[in-house]
Computed example of a mutant assay.
Amino acid sequence: MRLHVDQRHERVLELVRERGSLRVAELAAELGMSAVTLRRDVEALAAQGLVERLHGAVVWPSGQPRPVPAAPSAEGLVVGMVVPTTEYYYADVVRGARETVEAAGARLTIGLSHYLPDEDAAQTRRLLSTGADGLLLTPSWERGCPEPGEGLWAVEQETPVVLVERWAPLGHPAAGLDRVRSDHAHGAAEAVAHLAGLGHRAIALAVQDSPTAPRLKVGYRAAVEALGLSPVPASPLENTPSRSEQDRFERTLEYLCEGVASGHVTAAIVHSDADAIVLIPRLQARGVRVPEDLAVIAYDDEVASLADLPLTAVAPDKRAVGAAAARLLLSRLGASDPDAPAARTAGPGARRHLDILPALRIRVSCGAAAS
């Protein structure tokens, strides 16, 4: 027998009052209603302040007496994740997200952009069309953040969105999105401070062109100024980007060799550790001893420990970034992780910007282990 609208509303209120929170799909199935009809009923009840809506769930209004609800289940949820690649840096980011999503009983689906123009939005549409309830997005923004007018598609999504290893400047519409990222500026500053603690006053920064580079430069410059270190001539790649990997290595090599020979450089931070592994043998072939003549700290710590001269490295906690982003998105979808208090306290309206600090791993290349 079909229930009258008032009867439906009464039954919805009874179930939500009894259980505290219910997923819309579960409630529709229990009442034998279509999801479309139930959503209309929930909207009407929410407009009267009788229930609250949370992405995909119905909850009893805060402040009203009700039973303590169990954490909403993530069972059946699909989390879409768009990343440039699943190799190198992003392998651990994806791994952290996947472990968290699957531990909650949900499923992770992946879209790859390969840094191709417009592919981020295309992969997002594809994931949504195949049932994604929320999105973890790492857009292919060259500087790690959108240029003016860029990235508006990320803001226009109707599903919850969490930016991963990306950010947006104040005033940009995407600045209001949830985000989780490594604090690369802090990581670079920690490297500068460590080298300064070893007695170095002239520290160079050699970075490849990547979304990470702008934040490394911010942290490096801030630390050099704060510690009163000697200014060092900038890498020639600052003004004229490299044309190829070979060009990047040759020009960086010349820059560091000239800095050491002139006495203007005694230490360097090199991004990435793969670049450092290529550069150090070339420096040694030119008579520059590491760490005696040039102390080196690499950035990323993907393969730094495997170098024949183990590299001191700044290590972003990529798996933690992926896991934290997944927990935040699941909380937006109404599925709290009982082992993650931060997810339970996020709430539907409290946007969050989480910066996870990298760690500094001391090995031989900076000279600290030798001393």
Rank of each mutant, 00 (worst) to 15 (best):
Ala274Phe: 13
Gly171Glu: 07
Arg181Gln: 13
Leu38Phe: 04
Asp300Thr: 15
Tyr89Lys: 02
Gln157Lys: 11
Glu102Gly: 09
Val265Ile: 15
Thr100Asn: 03
Thr85Lys: 08
Gln48Cys: 09
Leu31Trp: 02
Gln123Asn: 02
Arg11Glu: 15
Glu165Phe: 07
Cys145Asp: 00
Arg17Lys: 11
His4Lys: 14
Thr252Phe: 07
Val314Cys: 12
Val265Gln: 03
Ala70Arg: 12
Asp275Trp: 02
Glu292Leu: 06
Glu75Phe: 05
Gly80Pro: 08
Asp6Thr: 14
Met33Glu: 15
Ser365Lys: 05
Arg248Pro: 00
Val78Ala: 06
Ser34Ile: 03
Pro211Met: 05
Asp92Tyr: 14
Tyr115Arg: 12
Gly149Trp: 05
Ala154Thr: 13
Asp273Pro: 04
Leu135Asp: 06
Arg8Cys: 08
Leu50Ala: 11
Glu150Phe: 10
Gly131Leu: 09
His184Met: 01
Asp92Thr: 10
Glu156Tyr: 00
Cys145Leu: 08
Val36Lys: 13
Arg215Val: 03
Ala234Trp: 09
His194Cys: 00
Ser242Gln: 15
Leu22Cys: 11
Asp178Ala: 08
Val260Asp: 06
Gly32Val: 05
Glu14Thr: 09
Gly134Pro: 13
Leu311Lys: 01
Arg332Trp: 09
Ser365Gln: 00
His9Thr: 02
Ser371Asp: 08
Ser182Thr: 11
Ser182Arg: 05
Pro65Glu: 05
Glu150Arg: 15
Pro338Met: 12
Pro316Gly: 11
Val232Ala: 12
Ala326Arg: 07
Ala104His: 10
Leu328Ser: 14
Ser129Glu: 15
Ala154Ser: 14
Arg332Asp: 12
Glu245Trp: 13
His200Asp: 06
His184Val: 01
Ala175Leu: 03
Ala343Gly: 15
Leu205Glu: 06
Gly347Met: 02
Leu216Ile: 09
Val321Cys: 03
Thr266Trp: 07
Glu292Tyr: 11
Val5Thr: 04
Arg361Thr: 10
Gly367Asn: 04
Arg95Gln: 11
Leu54Thr: 02
Asp301Ala: 08
Pro241Leu: 04
Val278Met: 01
Asp6Phe: 07
Ala369Thr: 14
Val36Arg: 11
Ala323Gly: 14
Gln157Thr: 06
Arg107Asp: 01
Ala313Pro: 10
Glu99Lys: 01
Ala304Phe: 02
Ala226Asp: 15
Ala325Ile: 08
Thr240Ile: 09
Asp183Met: 07
Glu150Lys: 12
Val290Ser: 09
Val364Arg: 10
Arg39Ile: 13
Arg126Asn: 11
Ala29Asp: 12
Leu294Trp: 12
Ala193Val: 03
His4Gly: 07
Pro160His: 10
Pro231Ser: 10
Ser244Val: 08
Lys318Cys: 04
Leu108Ala: 14
Gly287Glu: 10
Asp339His: 07
Pro338Ala: 12
Ala234Gln: 14
